[in-house]
């Protein structure tokens, strides 16, 4: 299968002493469900945000579907971002607006500025948003304000929003870290579903090995900004786990 994403010698310095990403090379195949492991501060979030250039990498190349994203700017960059969805630990929804409007906001990259003021006038689009909300089981919440929803529901709204982009790649930055275990599993199930049925490539940072084994097709681990493991989820044994998370770490089984 083809590589959808290739990172070459990616580096990110926040300042002279903070080397957040250190010479990372990575190839992601189309259809992968890549799990990104590593301690907090190991560079997972920075790596994910470099891919869609929410954070500017210091040096290196990022090929997304054959184009180096680092060379892009302005409209071409925004067009590349349309195809790369992102899901966040804190959901990052607009809490004062309705679930439907939040879902529609995923489509902003395709709108003119004028049209983005009145997205609801486009019936076809509203129908699509409702279809996506139905897919994550939230159709009856369409007209509720997001702040009245639970954490798990909010993350599902975020998934519906990402779906509006028709993404080829989804970057998920600890999508279940602020959820309880049962809800976490259900959110991961939705992501797994997108990966299998819609053939969307997913890169997801996680802390739970059990979830990594259940949904991941491949695991990559970062330590101090360096890539230190790349393999199958089943390859991670106790020793590998301790290498990634430090000698004191114990695997916590959440089921």
């Amino acid at each position: 299968m083809e590589n959808i994403l290739t990172l070459e010698k990616l580096n990110k310095f926040y300042d002279e002493d903070t080397h957040a990403i250190n010479d990372v090379d990575l190839e992601v195949k189309e259809g992968d469900f890549l799990i990104l492991l590593g301690l907090s501060g190991s560079g997972k979030s920075t790596l994910l945000r470099c891919i869609n250039r929410l954070i500017e990498p210091t040096s290196g190349k990022i090929y997304f579907e054959g184009t180096n994203v680092c060379d892009l700017g302005g409209t071409p960059l925004r067009h590349a971002r349309r195809e790369i969805g992102m899901i966040f630990q804190q959901f990052n929804l607009i809490k004062n607006l309705t679930v439907l409007t939040n879902a529609l906001s995923g489509r902003l990259g395709y709108f003119s500025t004028i049209k983005s003021l009145f997205p609801r006038l486009d019936n076809e689009l509203v129908a699509q948003a409702k279809k996506n909300l139905k897919r994550v089981g939230l159709e009856e919440f369409a007209n509720q304000k997001v702040k009245n929803l639970s954490g798990g529901q909010q993350q599902r709204v975020a998934i519906a929003r990402v779906l509006m982009q028709n993404p080829k790649l989804i970057l998920a930055d600890e999508p279940v870290a602020s959820l309880d275990p049962a809800t976490a599993d259900s959110v991961m199930r939705y992501l797994g579903n997108l990966n299998k049925n819609d053939n969307i490539t997913i890169i997801c940072s996680l802390h739970f090995l059990s979830l990594a084994r259940k949904y991941g097709t491949r695991v990559v681990a970062l330590k101090g900004g360096k890539l230190m493991f790349d393999g199958e989820p089943t390859e991670i044994d106790e020793q590998k786990f301790k290498d990634i998370y430090g000698q004191d770490a114990e695997e916590v089984d959440i089921k």
Binding site: L54, R81, M86, L171
Partner: peptide, 12 residues
């Protein structure tokens, strides 16, 4: 957070 999210959808 929402600013990041909107940027990541390709919004101007």
């Amino acid at each position: 957070g929402p600013i990041e999210a909107m940027k990541s959808t390709g919004a101007n």
